[in-house]
Nucleic acid binder design. Structure first.
Length: 479
RNA sequence: CCGGGUGUGGCGCAGUUGGUAGCGCGCUUGACUGGGGGUCAAGAGGCCGCAUGUUCAAGUCAUGUCACUCGGACCA
């Protein structure tokens, strides 16, 4: 088999048109479909199965760190939304409103939640009284609505699924620790489950969340070398609590405003998985998140004993706790090969009469296309090993992409040139002045992705204004 | 939100000066096949995105609208 031969004709090559490739994958892998309202998407069973696995992994981690799930209302009265000034300014332009109940116009219009900080705050105002009530570690899985102008599958929906964690703490230190802990949860999840290497850091004031005092982010590099913010956590200080009059009596019986955080990951990250690991044959899924980890394909299944043997393989692999599918439909083997490649199944196991005779099967990696003859006696040890190879291979490939396309620069012109020629991330020093950040956007075409935790010393001055530099910033073109 | 493009069976497309819709793939049934998208045969499936208008007559012309898409602006 020619490994680099293109086998799936329906998908546009990513080198030809990356955007088209991306939407082709979303549709042909049956992840998503359009509905009749712009930006409101249908997550098909296979796409939703990926989200279910993401939810499972994250939810387990949240609960392990003491968080509880809740369900808040979907509608926010306008007066409630307006209590925190920066927040409403940030979100008002993209709110959708409910103005009628039945046939009667409402006295106060209701916003369909774009995020739920205000709802949590209103509730907390009622239930928080004492230092004994803190901390409150809440999370909810829900959908939110933001009236975006440009929409794209997974990357920018108007309605999207996410989790939003909201917590309340007695002290700033504790809240900041929570914010950092949750970012680390996201980073660990991205790297170890989704095989997506991340850069951890803070957003600049210009890029931070509306109403937040500090916004943390993990940034990933996509195959086209653009940046995708894959998870974010916010430290709010006590700003919302003051606006919503949330106070508690501390041990000295003083009334104090608590400190607040929020953090979220959305279905957007599925777009990240697609653009990090996918190739010209379609989707490629890391085994740890794949709805189907191994597909077992019988060859010449009408021949005696083939279906029985294949069924047995499915059962043996399932007994290992793997997510396995046997495809016994009457499509041709070639059709099935292409189908499961398009859907990104990490490992394919072929079993036919010749294999049965020789007591082995053939395992084929989705990433390398490499065929491995596996003795049926070694099935239980060999298949998990091969899956592990795929998982690690994907991470290393993505890491290589990130490292090969990360540059340093000491001038604005050099930054522009690097990004124009190669895309990717450029590290420079920065004075901290928003004017210089805007200049980078206008003259080099990049926005600040983050101020990474891992700082490097690239120079002493800001490349834009020449004043003394405060920090190193990573710049890039973002989704 | 501004500018360009596109909406015709499930998917991809054709449809001339307006005259009552066609092709490929897929789908259904059967047989033969089966280690990279098989072969043959017989079938089913369409208010031409939606609305209004012009006309004896609209997929085709006009206006509006909705969606998709590519740029740009906007966006945690």
């Amino acid at each position: 088999m020619a490994k680099d031969k293109k086998q799936v004709e329906q998908i546009t090559d990513m080198e030809v048109d990356f955007t088209k490739w991306y939407t082709d994958v979303c549709k042909k892998a049956e992840l998503i479909d359009y509905s009749s309202v712009k930006g409101l998407m249908i997550l098909r069973p296979y796409g939703y199965a990926i989200w279910e696995n993401i939810m499972g992994e994250l939810d387990r981690r949240f609960k392990a760190t003491g968080h509880q799930n809740v369900s808040m209302p979907m509608l926010i009265p306008e007066s409630l939304l307006q209590k925190e000034k920066d927040h409403v300014e940030g979100f008002a332009p993209e709110c959708a409103w409910v103005t009628f109940g039945g046939t009667e116009e409402l006295e106060e219009r209701l916003c369909i939640r774009p995020t739920s900080e205000t709802l949590f705050c209103e509730h907390w105002h009622n239930i928080v009284h004492s230092w004994r009530d803190l901390p409150l570690l809440y999370n909810q899985w829900c959908s939110v609505l933001r009236w975006e102008k440009t929409t794209r599958p997974f990357l920018r929906h108007r309605e999207f699924l996410w989790q939003e964690g909201h917590t309340l703490h007695a002290t700033a230190e504790e809240a900041i620790a929570e914010t950092e802990q949750q970012l680390e949860t996201y980073a660990d999840f991205c790297e170890n489950i989704l095989a997506m290497p991340v850069i951890r850091g803070c957003k600049t004031d210009k890029e931070k969340f509306a109403g937040a005092e500090r916004t943390y982010t993990i940034e990933c590099m996509m195959h086209d070398r653009k940046a995708l913010q894959s998870g974010t956590s916010h430290y709010f200080g006590d700003g919302f609590c003051k606006a919503f009059d949330i106070t508690f009596a501390d041990k000295d019986n003083k009334q104090i405003n608590p400190h607040q955080t929020s953090w979220g990951v959305s279905t957007r990250i599925i777009g990240g998985i697609i653009m990090t690991h996918g190739d010209n044959n379609g989707l490629v899924l890391p085994p740890k998140i794949a709805p189907i980890q191994v597909v077992v394909l019988p060859i010449a299944q009408h021949k005696e004993g083939v279906i029985e043997k294949a069924t047995e393989l499915v059962a043996r692999l399932e007994a290992l706790g793997l997510r396995v599918k046997g495809d016994f439909s009457d499509n041709s083997p070639g059709w099935k090969f292409a189908e499961y490649e398009m859907k990104g199944v990490p490992l394919r196991v072929e079993i036919g009469p010749k294999d049965i005779e020789e007591n082995h099967c053939v395992a084929v990696s989705r990433v390398s296309g490499e065929k491995t003859i596996v003795s049926l006696d070694d099935l239980e040890t060999k298949i998990p090993e091969l899956l592990n190879d795929v998982q690690n291979g994907l991470f290393n490939k993505a890491k290589q992409n990130l490292e090969e396309h990360s540059y340093s620069a000491t001038s604005l012109d050099a930054t522009r040139q690097l990004v124009e020629e190669n895309g990717g991330f450029v590290k420079t020093m920065w004075c901290g002045d928003e004017a210089c950040e805007i200049a980078m956007k206008e003259r080099a075409g990049v926005t600040s992705r983050c101020i990474p935790f891992q700082q490097e010393h690239i120079g002493d001055v800001c490349p834009v204004c020449g004043k003394p530099a405060k920090t190193m910033v990573i710049w890039g073109v973002a989704y």
